[in-house]
């Protein structure tokens, strides 16, 4: 883990309210793995006091990329920074996805596509076939669907309003049998992970879930970001963010 004040190379509002940021961070980019996050300082002054954690969306050469949606004060401030300005970032942090060498099913809900996009990039390099399932409320909430389409062997999209792909929820269009032949990775809202866990549990298979939570320290010190697991409260920041679906209590 490193803490650096570095340059913002590029900002791009890929869909209204969804931003891709590229930061110059050679050391972090080199050591980042899919599922890990960076902890970003959003204000120089006393408010907002907490950093914001964002999944790493890609890491290549000197560049580290995050994707975020403007949901509140912190992300609003972050969306206003410009290329050339400085940013204070800490990372990479957390337990990454464990990449299994068998065909992969990646299931993303909305902004949850960020770590799975990074994962799909790495799987492409490793020649692991990827079936990508990507759902959101509407086409305007599918920020990376074209990029994902370009790298995944198969992309299935659902939107709740039917504006792109099949109308409905992503958990409605999964393959009938998610067998042991596939490795399943997922990231999305709690409702999606809850529905997915039911499906997985019914079929007796497990997946890797990337969870999110509000965080204070981001390094495992404050115990603020815990989630329920079958073996008690675990810190999302360093015990996760990637957990086995068997362990999480959603």
């Amino acid at each position: 883990m490193n803490l650096v004040t570095t340059e913002i190379l590029k900002t791009n509002e890929v869909k209204p309210g969804y931003f891709l940021h590229d930061y110059n961070a050679p050391l972090m980019a080199k050591t980042s793995e899919p599922g890990q996050f960076i902890h970003v300082r959003v204000a120089a002054g006393p408010h907002p006091i907490l950093r914001r954690p964002f999944s790493i969306c890609s890491a290549k050469e000197d560049r580290l990329q995050i994707l975020f949606r403007v949901v509140g004060e912190g992300t609003h401030l972050l969306s206003k920074v410009m290329p050339g300005e400085k940013i204070d970032i800490m990372g990479p942090i957390g337990t990454p996805f464990k990449i299994e060498h068998k065909p992969a099913v990646l299931i993303a809900g909305g902004i949850g596509c960020a770590p799975l996009y990074f994962l799909a990039l790495r799987m492409k390099e490793a020649n692991i076939p990827v079936r990508f399932y990507y759902g959101a409320r509407s086409v305007s909430d599918l920020p990376l669907h074209e990029e994902i389409n370009a790298i995944a062997g198969e992309l299935n999209i659902t939107t709740e309003d039917g504006s792109l792909g099949k109308k409905g929820l992503i958990t409605d269009v999964l393959p009938d049998r998610l067998t042991q032949d596939f490795a399943v990775y997922a990231c999305g809202p709690e409702t999606m992970l809850h529905a997915l866990k039911k499906i997985l549990d019914a079929q007796g298979i497990s997946a890797q879930f990337s969870l999110e939570n509000r965080m204070a320290c981001g390094v495992g010190a404050c115990m603020g970001c815990v989630t329920r697991t079958i073996s008690g409260f675990k810190r999302v920041c360093v015990d996760g963010p990637v957990f086995s679906s068997d362990d999480v209590v959603i």
Binding site: P46, I49, L50, R214, G224, R228, F233
Partner: peptide, 11 residues
């Protein structure tokens, strides 16, 4: 949980 909430210039 939840165990933390951000508040004006604090938490």
């Amino acid at each position: 949980p939840p165990r933390i909430v951000e508040t004006p210039a604090g938490m």
